[in-house]
Design a binder for these strands. Structure first.
Lengths: 248, 248
DNA sequence: ACCGCTGTTTGATCTGTGTCAATGCGTCAG
DNA sequence: CTGACGCATTGACACAGATCAAACAGCGGT
């Protein structure tokens, strides 16, 4: 066992059984579509929860893969590192989203997952998830959908990196965040960025200065209001226009 | 049923039962790691094969998702289209690789798959694959690995698009092709590109002129020899240096 | 309240890649 | 054999975004 056991909070039997059933992320997370009985079975498979403090790693590239993680609360980034030191943020994840699926293919994680604010995750031992998937058709199918969604998301990012210009990328990024916050019951127009300009830039394939300038430009045009990490989207449609209206 | 039935070749019982068991791609494709008996079960699930002529679509974005496809022979590209007409190649696939997993998440395909040369695929109805996965643990796990590998591959492309310069991207591209041809028993150093400069450029987030110039430059430096689509890698290590030695 | 650190903004300049344009090569049809 | 078409190469120039640099804001610690 190389896994450090610190930060793992074993649950009492009661809270364990209640984990998924009582979670308000049911509709976003793995239990989606399961019957009450099936959620109970999943509850038993979910071993424990773990708290990750801001700037701490949930896992690192190269570490042994054993579990995937469902984010219960908080905010993460994942990044990959090249031998020469260059690294790139591959995604930002929020409550209800699943982390760690990159590790399935090679029995080791291929990227780092870092908490951008104090967070909590549910640990889902992967072998148990597979066992349960063989018994619960709905869970099996839903898990496949989750993995597939990750592939589709990645294609979107590839599109963004491959064909879009700096301000289009940032507009796409803001709209995507807005949409995901909305799905979680937060304001679609006003939110707090958990990541730095540098991390946004890394994700979007831009330098931090370019990100900063694009923010300022959006603000001048009345599309958004920025104050450091506090964002208000003033003109949702205007941002969308920036994306598609590129042709004429 | 919206699926056009043309181009589907129903197999005789004998060839059907023999499909995976006799296929020389077993070790690269879905049957990897299965026992003889399990491969027989998979054979029964694989419904039919289909021939796709050069430039024809295997599926299109928006089409109903029913099956994934294992490439038996040939070469494909997948691409996504934005509303404004911009499109991007998201990958090139060769024998033994699986196509169509993007469709699982939303019950419809999210990209186009086009044959770049006359090709043959095995049609794997997805619901049957899920049924079989519930019975064969090895198959289930291997399928999860295949999906995960796709996610990891996508991260690699994101890295490439986000942090690498034109010539690094092309070097990475050539080395990746070389490695995949090698795994299939072809020459690691000499191969025929199935795609145009424009398609390479689209995949790498570059314009075709930039791709062409990078090829010429590699040739001047004695790293490769190019004649249209015929490539010979003369200095494998030199190409690798281009990738990592970026730092100093 | 002040210091020091980290992250952000803004400006000036540089450069890699895109854009536009012309030419060249190969293949297929007639 | 010849013309036409698709694809590739090469050159000249433009520009988006990178790089370098300086100043500034916010925040935690003492």
């Amino acid at each position: 066992m190389h896994k450090p056991e610190k930060h793992i909070i074993p649950l009492t039997l009661t809270s364990l059984k209640a984990a998924c059933s009582l979670c308000n992320l049911r509709e976003l997370c793995l239990p989606f579509g399961l019957s009450e009985h099936e959620v109970d079975l999943l509850d038993n498979a979910v071993g424990a929860q773990r708290r990750i403090k801001r700037q701490q790693h949930l896992y690192r590239a190269g570490e042994n893969f054993e579990s995937i993680y469902a984010i219960r609360s908080g905010f993460f980034k994942t990044d990959v590192l090249l031998e020469d030191g260059r690294n790139q943020v591959t995604g930002f994840q929020m409550a209800g989203e699943i982390l760690g699926m990159d590790g399935i293919s090679g029995e080791a994680h291929t990227c780092n997952a870092v908490a951008l604010e104090d967070s909590e995750v549910c640990i889902i031992p992967f072998s148990q998830l597979e066992t349960l998937s063989r018994e619960i058709k709905t869970l099996q199918h839903h898990f496949h959908k989750v993995m597939s969604r990750e592939i589709v998301r990645d294609h979107g990012v590839m599109m963004l990196l491959g064909t879009m210009r700096a301000e289009e990328r940032l507009a796409a990024f803001l709209l995507n965040l807005s949409q995901r916050f909305t799905a979680r019951g937060y304001s679609p127009a006003e939110f707090h960025l958990r990541m730095t300009r540098d991390e946004i830039g890394s994700y979007l394939g831009l330098k931090l200065e370019t990100v900063s300038r694009a923010f300022s430009h959006f603000q001048e045009d009345g599309l958004i209001s920025v104050q450091q990490k506090h964002i208000v989207i003033l003109d949702h449609a205007g941002l969308k226009d920036l994306l598609n209206h590129q042709l004429g």
